[in-house]
């Protein structure tokens, strides 16, 4: 989601593509730009990275509102801290590399990172995670479009591995006191407490600041899908396969395994499915690849949740599938017209 595919091409051949995207160049076209020789696709879209990022931010708005409602203004501070540190890191590193700060992708990374953090986390760790997301998660691979993993999730994995206790201290949203509480998944795994569905749907349960309200995330996610800034196949196949695999285990032993609805509305699945798995840079480009990506992530998620040491597996399921993305792209490459199967 952090950039359009269009931009990818732009970066590779900036001189050839840019005039194609803008039919009316302001200055006189230089001789070598008048006639454009480029390979397909000859797609002309007006969307640039900025527009995409604007829409993504808009889609995240309902979830941000929910986080403020449930966890107070502290969550707004966390989001602002993350966004500011991400943007600053981006500017500094771009300067070091002699590049211009252009895209708003760092803003989206910042918001997404903050939304996957627990409400009690000290702001210093938020800054550390943001710097890691941009510097190690993105810039070190060559900047936007070259990163293998979703930067926000990578930073979260770093924080989770570094500060496991602080990253799993949850508070109760309604009372907001310092008493620690369990997330729906953690409660189920370690203490056999089942949370009510309605609370999980509206977000009245323990969890990261931006992941609890499944309903408002879906609202934003559907907006993205309608506007076509996210590939609908990924959330559909991800959520669908979670339901299918969840149902299989639930039918095997309903007493031991939670039912598929519980899987669907607990933890960070909705946020992950709509906003993180759909990241254009780190998910497959082909339609068939998107299906494989989503189904693989869903399968991994159910396995991690049911049999892993940790209660939640959205982060690792997406990161693992990110690693498979180049391979998926390779094997689902569309055939050339007229190509014969070997």
């Amino acid at each position: 989601m952090e950039e359009s595919k269009q931009n990818n091409q732009e970066e590779q051949k900036p001189k050839l593509e840019k005039p194609a995207a803008k039919p009316k160049p302001k200055s006189k076209p230089k001789p070598d730009q008048t006639f454009i020789l480029s390979s397909s696709p000859h797609q002309v879209k007006t969307d640039d990275v900025k527009t995409v990022m604007k829409h993504v931010n808009m889609a995240l708005l309902p979830a941000i509102v929910a986080s403020v409602v449930y966890f107070g203004f502290r969550s707004l501070f966390m989001i602002l801290t993350a966004v500011i540190s991400c943007v600053l890191t981006e500017i500094v590193i771009n300067k070091m590399r002699g590049k211009q700060f252009r895209e708003g992708s760092a803003i989206v990374t910042g918001i997404l990172l903050a939304m996957t953090l627990p409400p009690t986390l000290h702001l210093g760790f938020v800054v550390m995670g943001s710097v890691f997301a941009i510097a190690i998660g993105k810039q070190i691979f060559g900047g936007l479009g070259y990163n293998i993993f979703n930067p926000a999730l990578l930073a979260r994995a770093f924080l989770q591995a570094s500060f496991p206790v602080r990253m799993t201290t949850w508070t109760n949203p309604s009372t907001l006191d310092a008493v620690t509480t369990a997330t729906p998944l953690g409660g189920l795994k370690f203490e056999n407490i089942v949370s009510p569905y309605f609370d999980m749907l509206i977000g009245n349960c323990g969890g990261c600041i931006g992941e609890t309200s499944a309903l408002l995330i879906i609202v934003g996610g559907v907006y993205l899908l309608i506007k076509k800034y996210a590939d609908w196949r990924i959330p559909v196949s991800y959520l669908g396969s979670v339901v299918i695999f969840g149902t299989i285990f639930w039918l095997i032993n309903p007493g031991q395994y939670p039912d598929p609805l519980y899987h669907l509305f607990s933890g960070g699945l909705m946020l992950g499915a709509f906003f993180m798995a759909t990241d254009m840079v780190t998910s497959p480009v082909t339609p068939k690849g998107s299906w494989i990506f989503g189904i693989g992530a869903g399968f991994l998620l159910v396995i991690i949740r049911l049999f892993g040491g940790l209660p939640e597996g959205v982060m690792y399921s997406i990161l693992l599938m990110n690693a498979f993305t180049p391979l998926i792209n390779r094997f689902t490459r569309p055939k050339f017209f007229g190509e014969v199967k070997k």
């Binding site: 770093f158 591995a161 570094s162 500060f163 496991p164 602080r166």
Partner: peptide, 8 residues
């Protein structure tokens, strides 16, 4: 606060 990940 030690960064646990570094010794992992």
């Amino acid at each position: 606060v030690p960064w646990m990940v570094m010794i992992l």
